[in-house]
Computed example of a mutant assay.
Amino acid sequence: MTIREAANTLRFPERKFVQWLLMNGWCYRRAGHKSLLAYAEKVKDGYLYLKQTPIQDVHTGEERLSEQVRITPLGLTVLARRLSREGLQVDVPAGMLAPASRTQLGGERRA
């Protein structure tokens, strides 16, 4: 789901949600660009992915990639837990805070 959809699902203001993602190492912006990009660690953990779509620039006619961060269902669950644990006011849908394994939450695996 998009960042806007995730913020709406969590009933958390979108701008504050984007700021939280930036400040907590989930996303970043390239210098001089507005769009968000996902950190590789969060992609590898299965929380985020980067949707890339080839588009044609209307001004130059050149083809380029449009990139958009998407949040996976697992990522949404982890975000809901982190935000509520930090005491931020989120309205989490029922079942989203059900117990999960430490590996799903990005914790260490122990043998």
Score class of each variant (00 low, 15 high):
residue 5 E to F: 00
residue 29 R to V: 09
residue 31 A to L: 01
residue 36 L to I: 08
residue 29 R to F: 06
residue 38 A to K: 01
residue 93 P to H: 02
residue 98 A to T: 14
residue 13 P to K: 03
residue 2 T to I: 10
residue 53 T to W: 05
residue 16 K to F: 02
residue 34 K to P: 00
residue 87 G to N: 03
residue 52 Q to D: 09
residue 48 L to H: 03
residue 85 R to C: 05
residue 102 R to I: 08
residue 83 L to Y: 04
residue 100 A to V: 15
residue 102 R to Y: 13
residue 18 V to S: 09
residue 105 L to Q: 15
residue 62 E to R: 12
residue 102 R to Q: 13
residue 101 S to P: 00
residue 66 S to N: 09
residue 55 I to N: 07
residue 66 S to W: 04
residue 32 G to L: 04
residue 61 G to K: 04
residue 101 S to W: 05
residue 97 L to C: 06
residue 101 S to H: 14
residue 3 I to L: 13
residue 49 Y to M: 01
residue 6 A to P: 04
residue 47 Y to G: 11
residue 5 E to S: 10
residue 12 F to D: 06
residue 88 L to C: 04
residue 19 Q to W: 02
residue 3 I to P: 00
residue 96 M to W: 15
residue 102 R to L: 15
residue 70 R to H: 07
residue 21 L to W: 13
residue 85 R to T: 08
residue 25 G to S: 07
residue 98 A to Q: 12
residue 104 Q to R: 11
residue 1 M to D: 03
residue 76 L to F: 07
residue 24 N to P: 09
residue 101 S to Y: 05
residue 42 K to I: 06
residue 44 K to Y: 10
residue 51 K to E: 15
residue 78 V to E: 08
residue 67 E to C: 14
residue 5 E to I: 00
residue 61 G to I: 01
residue 2 T to R: 11
residue 9 T to H: 02
residue 54 P to W: 01
residue 65 L to C: 09
residue 35 S to P: 00
residue 38 A to W: 04
residue 57 D to S: 04
residue 89 Q to P: 05
residue 61 G to H: 00
residue 14 E to M: 07
residue 27 C to G: 07
residue 72 T to C: 06
residue 76 L to S: 01
residue 94 A to H: 14
residue 31 A to K: 13
residue 1 M to L: 02
residue 35 S to L: 13
residue 98 A to I: 10
residue 62 E to D: 14
residue 63 E to G: 05
residue 58 V to E: 00
residue 83 L to H: 02
residue 45 D to V: 03
residue 75 G to N: 12
residue 32 G to T: 07
residue 24 N to A: 03
residue 74 L to G: 05
residue 106 G to A: 08
residue 18 V to T: 15
residue 72 T to D: 03
residue 30 R to F: 08
residue 32 G to R: 10
residue 10 L to M: 02
residue 103 T to M: 14
residue 57 D to P: 03
residue 99 P to Y: 05
residue 30 R to C: 06
residue 25 G to Q: 08
residue 26 W to F: 12
residue 52 Q to Y: 00
residue 34 K to V: 11
